[in-house]
Design a protein around this nucleic acid. Structure first.
Lengths: 204, 204
DNA sequence: CACGCGCTTGATTGTCGAGTCAATTAGTAT
DNA sequence: ATACTAATTGACTCGACAATCAAGCGCGTG
């Protein structure tokens, strides 16, 4: 028997296992058994911590959205220059490879739950938080005298998020014409244009 | 009994029925029965025309990609002014509502088949055809003296396609912050900026 | 009109996996 | 140590659905 754990630890472990399972098998083919195997427990254990598959997927989605947002928020902490903030956002917003389990799970679940009003609101909430991050960075850049914006701040922020989303999708779908490095460069190109700030560069 | 039809007609009818079924139930919950009911035939008929569910989905995807592209291509026929072409592309590229069965099917299947190399190539092929359309319109606009581009033509074309894709996704997922009208305006804003052409307007 | 092939039917079979549950074990408090 | 609760197990039930198939129907052709 896998040694008994505190419930909250086991839940986190199962959520991580689910992320891997979704990446490997797709959410449409996700079985309780896949999660259990990856976590090294029996299927009954999964049902003990999550009532059913629906609840597991809901919890995974909430967890993933939260993780995705807070990771980026934390990355910005302590960065004073708006140009660095913007570059950091773009860099962190594009998955490293087509196997980013977090990004895959969010997109899979988005479509899996299409039509569900609650899920639509969660998606919208994440979208607006991301827009807010870009909004803040753009606004700061203007105040710091680095940016001269080509249009309304919100419009530019929304488009930056949209570009990120689209390239995430193409990357995880295996479109080689929009690979990670290329995607970052394209988004950065957009950022340079709309901020009139030529020295936005990836520092890697 | 539904009266017997020529096989190719029945196939088209079943493909259309599948588009509706995917929109209504999501691809993960798609049952042969859903397709049969919507087409007004028995389940056996679906199996007669498509070996199995996999093949049906493959054929639907190929059909949808082709339809999506050729529709836009035809819309451009006879339009001489690059500004009109660009506006037309943007207008036609954003779904009217969250219930656009064609767009929904393409996105659902993209993710459903993630990891499948063949599918990745089909996606890439569609992507590149769309990029080519925008590329042509941008280039033409320069030649006609209407556009002054802010960067490499390919970069701008790729970003236009990406913006379209992203807003499609948000619209069909029910994100109210990126509704059809707003999405079109945002993409158009991008187009105006990168072409330095202020008189790009939706004529509706 | 009769024959045959292509299309259609829907009952049936077999597989797969979600969810249940009674038994068991691990952890914790007294 | 004892007793109690929480966590874990995996065999089992049961419904859902893909795929098969034998039988029936009707259109086109001779």
């Amino acid at each position: 028997m896998a040694s008994a754990k505190k419930a909250s630890d086991r839940r986190d472990q199962l959520i991580l296992a689910t992320l891997d399972a979704i990446r490997d098998r797709g959410i449409a083919n996700l079985r309780i058994q896949d999660v259990a195997t990856r976590a090294g427990v029996a299927t009954g254990t999964v049902h003990y911590h999550f009532n059913d598959l629906d609840q597991l997927i809901n919890d995974v989605y909430a967890w993933a959205c939260d993780r995705f947002y807070t990771t980026r928020l934390n990355a910005l902490a302590g960065v004073e220059d708006a140009r660095d903030q913007l570059v950091l956002m773009i860099d962190a917003g594009v998955p490293e490879s087509e196997n980013d389990a977090l990004v895959i799970a969010m997109h899979d679940i988005d479509l899996y739950r299409r039509g569900n009003a609650t899920m639509g609101l969660l998606l919208q909430a994440l979208y607006e938080r991301q827009v807010a991050l870009y909004f803040a960075a753009l606004q700061l850049g203007v105040a710091q005298g680095h940016f001269r914006l080509s249009g309304p701040v919100v419009d530019l922020a929304q488009n930056l998020v949209a570009l990120e989303d689209a390239y995430e999708l193409h990357i995880i779908s295996g479109n080689r014409s929009a690979a990670p490095d290329r995607a970052r460069e394209l988004i950065l190109g957009y950022a340079r244009t709309v901020t009139s700030c030529a020295d936005l560069q990836l520092r890697r």
